[in-house]
Design a protein around this nucleic acid. Structure first.
Length: 460
RNA sequence: GUGGUUGUAGCUCAGCUGGUUAGAGCGUCGGUUUGUGGUACCGAAAGUCGCCGGUUCGAACCCGGUCUUCCACCCCA
């Protein structure tokens, strides 16, 4: 029975051109990572569930792809749980593995597990797919690649400074100008929550604040009130809503708001340190912007928080994110190892580069010379020439099927044409007898009979 | 998880209020051109109308379900 093939929701096939373009992004990022001193590691596509569960908040747990146990998985399920039909509780007994949700948590696991082999501070990068059981939409897939660079084992703020530079370097190398690197600090958010008497509602508070540019001041206040944040606290936020201007003037306003919060003041100090360094070092094409409403990845970040948005005019969610996590390895039993890292969203960067027409033309080139196949004798003769061409570093191939009854020449020429192969070589009986090759330039249509040496030098 | 949206030939899409053999362009294949591609002309093949069920004398069209696409919310790369 024939059935129409399909792939799961939120996944994609990539054709040769798309793969070439993706590889271009991969290799650009990889080169930048390595110039900054990062080394690659890889981790499995799936982890033990307990490694991942509970690290990304309640929402995150829901979006983790769980892998069903093999064998008779129902036999282990507690009868009571089964009768209750409680999906959450049953999940842990029928699924012990899950697809990785990001690269940061598996990395933390890796660090703890290999702590004795690692030389700290450890700078690693990782470019692998991650999976989320999300509903697809623009720039959002269920399988996508992240490119992460992290440093663990150092509390130095110079790392944050370097990561800002790394973002700038990568986007510059990709020709993507005008990205905004937004920065905030978890300590500032905690400080504000403390000042307004909502320390226990930090997450509700930041989630609401994060929506400021989307739903506006009034709606944000409504949401905060609805979450049980006291009115007099919200009133204290007033200077926050009117926070405008450059980095320095925003810092001044924050100093006023956070004058009574020790943690908040620490956050301000850190931001200032990073900003001062960046101002002094300069950025190529990106802009560093303080955004107090930035509240992403709250689950394990403790210091700086980064998010990168595409150049103005491109409608796309963030194309990168990251931050400082003081104790991510602590949950796996290794205390006092601070980490900081950033991530690039490959698939979204692809969409942005495509939309702005920033992919270089040269990256899709494949075969340079195609030999027409006139028959077995000619093919063997051609393959000798092809061998020399390949040794000279020229991508060459022989058309596999031979011309029969003098037909199919057209088909072979057409093949070269469709694949944008710039040169075609014809070797028939006449050429073989004279050890010559008819070289045709597909662009100009011109052709000439040449020796092997001339052939190689003409196409090189 | 919530709300909306989409699905007809390989691709992009027509198909009027349900009514014979479901169309076009592009592409594919063949020919004009048995050692020459891109252009032109001629011709051909190709569709379980996403899937399952229902209403009807009759369904691509109406109804229900399901999968898929895209979008917004939630959240996030």
């Amino acid at each position: 029975m024939e059935q129409k093939p399909s792939i799961p929701k939120g996944t994609r096939d990539f054709n040769p051109e798309q793969v070439a373009k993706r590889n271009y992004i991969f290799s650009t990022i990889k080169t930048c990572f390595e110039t900054f001193g990062f080394q690659p590691i890889e981790t499995p596509s799936f982890e033990n569930s307990e490694t991942l569960m509970g690290k990304y908040g309640e929402e995150g747990d829901r979006l983790i792809f769980k892998i069903l146990n093999s064998g008779d998985f129902l036999s282990k399920v507690n009868n009571q749980l089964y009768a209750d039909k409680n999906s959450n509780k049953i999940t842990s007994s029928i699924s012990e593995k899950a697809l990785r949700y990001d690269l940061t948590v598996p990395f933390a696991r890796y660090v703890v597990q290999h702590q004795n082999e690692i030389e700290f501070p450890f700078k690693r990068y990782q470019m692998q797919p991650v999976w989320r059981a999300d509903r697809p939409q623009k720039g959002r897939f269920r399988e996508f690649y992240q490119c992460d660079a992290d440093v663990v084992g150092s509390e130095s703020l110079w790392q944050e400074v370097e990561f800002v530079q790394l973002y700038d370097t990568v986007f510059d190398a990709l020709g993507l100008k005008g990205t905004t690197i937004k920065i905030n600090n978890r300590k500032i958010l905690s400080g504000i929550a403390e000042v307004i008497g909502a320390s226990d509602k930090l997450i509700d508070f930041t989630v609401a604040l994060d929506k400021l540019d989307k739903i506006g001041e009034e709606k944000v206040k409504e949401e905060m009130l609805g979450k049980g944040i006291p009115q007099n606290g919200i009133d204290k936020l007033q200077p926050l809503f009117s926070l405008t201007g450059g980095f320095d003037s925003q810092i001044e306003s924050l100093k006023q708001i956070l004058s009574t919060s020790k943690e908040g003041k620490k956050g301000i100090e850190e931001l200032q340190f990073i900003n001062n360094a960046i101002q002094s070092l300069g950025l190529k094409t990106s802009t560093l912007q303080l955004d107090v409403t930035l509240a992403r990845g709250l689950n394990y970040y403790t210091g700086a928080i980064f998010e990168v948005s595409a150049p103005e005019g491109v409608k796309m969610g963030s194309i990168g994110g990251g931050g400082r996590y003081a104790d991510l390895t602590g949950i796996f039993g290794l205390k006092n190892v601070s980490g900081v890292g950033i991530s690039f969203g490959l698939d979204r960067i692809y969409l942005v580069l495509e939309e702005l027409g920033l992919f270089p033309e040269t990256i899709t080139k494949s075969t340079e010379v195609l030999f027409i196949n006139f028959g077995d004798k000619e093919a063997l003769f051609s393959l000798k020439a092809i061998k020399s061409l390949r040794e000279a570093g020229v991508n060459s191939e022989l058309y596999p099927d031979r011309i029969t009854n003098g037909k199919h020449m057209k088909k072979q020429m057409n093949y070269a044409n469709k694949r944008n192969i710039p040169f075609v070589v014809l070797v028939g009986e006449e050429e073989m007898n004279n050890s010559l090759y008819t070289l045709k330039d597909m662009k100009s249509g011109e052709q000439k009979k040449v020796s092997l040496d001339v052939l190689i030098s003409s196409v090189k």
